[in-house]
């Protein structure tokens, strides 16, 4: 464990809590992409299967349970409890265009052709594009509530810190995982455009408005 990864995981946890709290407190999921949340749920489910089989550390196991629970809770709130506030009209990204290529790529490029490894690889590829429906929805509605943009910013910080974590691990532990790194770079790049808007708009108290 290193400080970059610890802060990254905390930022990731913060993002998930921010979103869950926002939906719960406002009793509404307006402006939130349910499709992205479904994809994140799928990412955690396929990646954390080893929760049962292999024990790495208390921290690792606790965080996996928290991420899974928070992700399922968010999906439940969006698709069941506050279903009436779900914005179908703007959450229209075709997620099959993300899931199918991720499955294909996981079958083609992986470290080991075993079920758990393929599922892990699938979750890595899927996570790198899972935010696209949310970014697409923000572009369609032309704006994002400030809480939603804080959520996206925290997610972006988590990804950025993971890049630093991989640099540190390569330098200090001579450890690297190209699949995780390449997918992670792709994912972080997707946030860059949003980062620019967040820094220039939201932090100046303006609403996050995309140029029409």
């Amino acid at each position: 464990m290193n400080i970059f990864r610890l802060l990254g995981d905390i930022s990731h946890l913060l993002a998930i809590i921010i979103l869950l709290r926002k939906i719960w407190m406002s009793r509404s999921c307006a402006g939130i992409s349910g499709k992205s949340q479904l994809l994140f749920g799928l990412v955690y489910t396929t990646r954390y299967l080893d929760l049962i089989t292999s024990y790495i550390s208390l921290y690792n196991s606790v965080m996996k349970v928290v991420f899974l629970a928070a992700s399922y809770a968010t999906i439940y709130l969006m698709y069941v409890k506050f279903k009436a506030t779900y914005d179908h009209n703007h959450d229209t990204f075709r997620i099959e265009f993300l899931v199918v290529p991720a499955v294909a790529l996981a079958l083609l490029i992986n470290h080991d052709f075993q079920v758990v490894e393929i599922l892990w690889t699938f979750s890595i590829y899927l996570e790198s594009v899972a935010i696209l429906p949310q970014l697409f929805m923000v572009s369609k509605t032309g704006e994002a509530e400030s809480i939603t943009s804080h959520y996206l910013f925290a997610l972006g910080v988590y990804r950025g810190l993971y890049l630093l974590n991989w640099i540190y691990r390569f330098w200090a532990e001579d450890h690297y995982d190209l699949i995780a790194i390449v997918a992670g770079v792709v994912q972080t790049v997707l946030y860059c455009d949003f980062f620019y808007l967040y820094i220039t708009k939201v932090l100046r108290g303006k609403k996050l408005q995309l140029p029409a």
Partner: peptide
């Protein structure tokens, strides 16, 4: 070293 045995990252 490219090692992927220990998947210790979340």
């Amino acid at each position: 070293a490219q090692d992927n045995e220990t998947k210790d990252e979340l």
